[in-house]
Simulated assay, not measured.
Amino acid sequence: MKFFKYLLLLSLTLLVIGLLYVSIQSGNYEVSRTKLMKYPVYSVFNIVNDLKTWEKWGPWHDEDSTIMVTYADKTVGVGASNRWTSKDGSGSIKTVSIIENKRIVQEIRFGDNEPSDVLWDFEKIAEGTKVTWTMKDDKAPFIFKVFSTLSGGWENMLGPMLDKGLNNLDEVVKSQPLKYSLGEVKIIENQDKIFLGFPYKMKIDYAEIQKVFADAMPKVIDYAIQSGLKYAEFTPGALYHKWDQIKGETEFHIGILIEKNIKPREDMEIIKVTGGKNVMITKCGNYNEGDYEAHMAIDTYLKVNNLISKWPIYELYVNDPTQVKQEDIQTDIYYPLQ
């Protein structure tokens, strides 16, 4: 009988020692894994940015078939979120900020615990895209410290999961067809042009900008037709006066480049686009696919040739996306030169 008492006492002592040991372990961790993927940065970024794709590559789905995911109305960009339940508990994830094709910042919450940070960094390199996935916290809950201790540390606990997720992501990106093509970057001479459109000042939020385009463009085109213009006498486009990625602010007009002047509606403006030399590129593919790469191609051309551009830069949407194949939707991008 004494033996069992001593055994129980020993077990309790070891348990207390174990709990004390865990309690003094740091709840501060930052674990990262990086993988080179031989695909354009937009291909990788767009998949990670869409939470509905995570079921295809998230490493936890391979480990737990009981996971059930519920999506919010928004699943792409800032504010996108979902929740899940499984035999091991519940959780949620939310996207809190993005820098297009460069960084995604998210918060992930397990149960009722405080959220941890999830960071994604995308770097365009000659071979493709360098992707870094990071999980970090400075106040991890006690139960997480228990798992970390049993695993031999935060790196051993989280690192293999991040590696597996990046490998799965690489396979998903590989299965996606390239959705755009870029023409040659070149210098052309333009005449003075007239632009009619709605002015906007807003935060850089790609989902919101898309909504603005979807609302404004049909209104401008309808007004042009009602004002007597034929389709051949105008080209839809956007005129950008500011794009400050650091402050997250942009100013632009959505409208049409017109061959002859018409009186604008009260909420529209007429802008004269001064002629001269422009660096331009043609991108073929769906809107928002390859736009970053097209602008970066011009940026590289400007640097290599010691050229300086000036505002406004503009895009023209040359053909009707409902009348051509997705890969043939044409966008011409112009950077006026100083």
Score class of each variant (00 low, 15 high):
L229S: 05
E259H: 04
D244F: 03
Y223F: 13
L14E: 06
Y314W: 13
K219G: 02
E259I: 02
K211I: 10
L51R: 08
I271Q: 08
P40I: 05
G248F: 07
T274D: 06
A238M: 13
M202Q: 14
L20S: 15
M161F: 13
G77T: 06
E184S: 10
V172G: 04
E249L: 12
W243E: 09
I256D: 10
G77W: 04
M157V: 01
S116H: 02
Y223G: 00
E293W: 04
V212K: 14
S81V: 02
G285C: 07
Q245T: 14
I17M: 13
T274I: 10
S175A: 15
V31T: 10
H253L: 15
S43I: 00
S32T: 13
I329T: 08
K325S: 13
K179Y: 03
K130M: 07
A294W: 02
F142E: 10
Q25R: 12
S11E: 04
E30A: 13
K310A: 04
H61W: 09
K325F: 09
E55V: 10
P236M: 08
G153A: 03
E293L: 03
F45M: 09
V173P: 08
L169P: 02
F142P: 02
A214P: 02
D222E: 15
L15Y: 06
G91K: 04
V118R: 02
G248D: 06
E107I: 06
I17S: 14
K303H: 09
K2R: 12
W57V: 02
T53F: 13
N306K: 14
L316H: 00
F213M: 14
I209N: 03
S90T: 14
T75D: 04
F142N: 04
P199F: 04
G285T: 00
K164T: 10
N286Q: 12
T129V: 09
Q25Y: 00
N168R: 13
M157P: 03
D332A: 07
F147V: 06
I313G: 02
K94T: 13
N101I: 03
T322K: 09
D64S: 07
Y42D: 15
Q226P: 02
R109V: 11
E100T: 11
K164C: 02
Q326Y: 01
M217N: 06
Q330P: 01
V304S: 05
G77V: 03
D121I: 07
E114K: 15
V41G: 07
G255W: 04
S11T: 15
F234Q: 01
K179T: 11
K247M: 12
S65D: 15
Y292K: 08
M296E: 14
Y21H: 13
K87F: 00
L162F: 12
D205Q: 08
N113W: 00
E127N: 05
E251F: 00
T66D: 09
Q330N: 00
K102C: 03
Y71R: 10
E189T: 11
I221E: 13
V16K: 04
V31I: 15
T282M: 02
S227T: 09
A232T: 12
L7S: 11
D299C: 01
L119G: 03
